[in-house]
Write a protein that binds this DNA or RNA. Sequence first.
DNA 1: TCTGGGGTCCTAGGACCC
DNA 2: TCTGGGGTCCTAGGACCC
Length: 421
Amino acid sequence: MYALADCNNFYASCERVFEPHLEGRPVIVLSNNDGCVIARSQEAKLLGFKVGDPIFKFKDVVKQHKVIVRSSNFALYGDMSRRVMQTMRLFSPDVEVYSIDEAFIKLDGLKGRNYEEVMRQMREAILQWTGIPVSIGIGKTKTLAKLANHYAKRTPEVGGVAKVPQKPDEMLKTVEIEDVWGIGRQWSKKLRNIGVSTAFDLVSVEPESIRRSFNIVAMKTVMELRGCTYFKFEQSPEQRKTLLRSRSFANPVTSWQKLSEAIASHATRASEKLRNEDLVAKVLRVFFHTSLYNRTDPRNSAHATVELIPPTNVTHTIIKAALGAAKPIWKEGFKYKRAGVQLLDLSSGPVQCSLFDSQEGQDRDKRMMVLLDAVNASMGAGTLHFAATGFTNVMQMRQLRRSPRYTTHWDELPKCLCGLD
DNA sequence: TCTGGGGTCCTAGGACCC
DNA sequence: TCTGGGGTCCTAGGACCC
């Protein structure tokens, strides 16, 4: 048996923990550069805000309903997430962190106890200790736990915890096809066309025919809804295969100087992440393109791939490779809106030296990176950086409404939570 | 004027091998 | 006039997830 614990409206709930007066009011959180909606409180959902809505189209609604609008504050959300997950681990050692706001919990270790009862206690503890409300679904497979979770979220009477019953038909009938985990927009449309509109309809379809019309993953989803385990519990995550760092520009970029600084910044952040996970990359891809929405300006999309020989995680090597690949494909006369660096073919194994590499050179680079990381860890990110990333900060995000990073920065600690002096 | 930033897996088709 | 049967690897595109 599995449980899926999922934080309710996570980012909006994080904003509320330190500002309780936001309770009951519509709250939305914006993407980087304050571009579009990425999270909504229940009240904001009822006003019709959807994930991905560009905020500038909703100025009137915001004003009329006094919607609380916040820039994203991932320092806060990441730390709150860590606290929630820590609390879960006190109730079961088998926790698979699935995303920033949800985790699967294997319940088999709790044999003899009432699963629902334990999960209710866990829910209470998380709410009391972190201030974050969660919903919990329990089922025989991950897909069924997800489904029960969905049910719990929409059915207040169950008090935040729901379990797929022995005879699941009635519950399955209440879940629309697009709300089944693993069935997205395209497949839902196709399924509705053949008369499949709920989870209940889907379990009645012959799995083999689903495999033929869709693919093996869709078939596994059907089997999971029928109670057969296909998606395994993964306590420790598999080693990642790719790593991407990219961002839209607050203001369009037209010069090679600015674009190269952005690419060097992404290369820096990607290298740091790589070292953080003790990996090296064999392939690098760099890309940049103009706005996807602007129909009047000339459009351009460029990308290039290079092999890193030998595989590396050294910042200056990766910056050099990224800029070397980007320079020949850069063109004058375009307003670039986004750039990024992707690292592929990642491995943790020992590095095979190339014929002309000196061991001394590699050792020196390694020592330099250890020093760089240590300085930046103790004195703040970016304290030491390569000149290629520039000093004017082309990467500056538009973030006009970010709340304080209450739990991770000393100078932003909450001073008063109750409105009293 | 203003539209996010990450990931995974599967499949089909082409190039190549014997 | 007639033209096999079996593999692997790579890439692009499309689906899904948060």
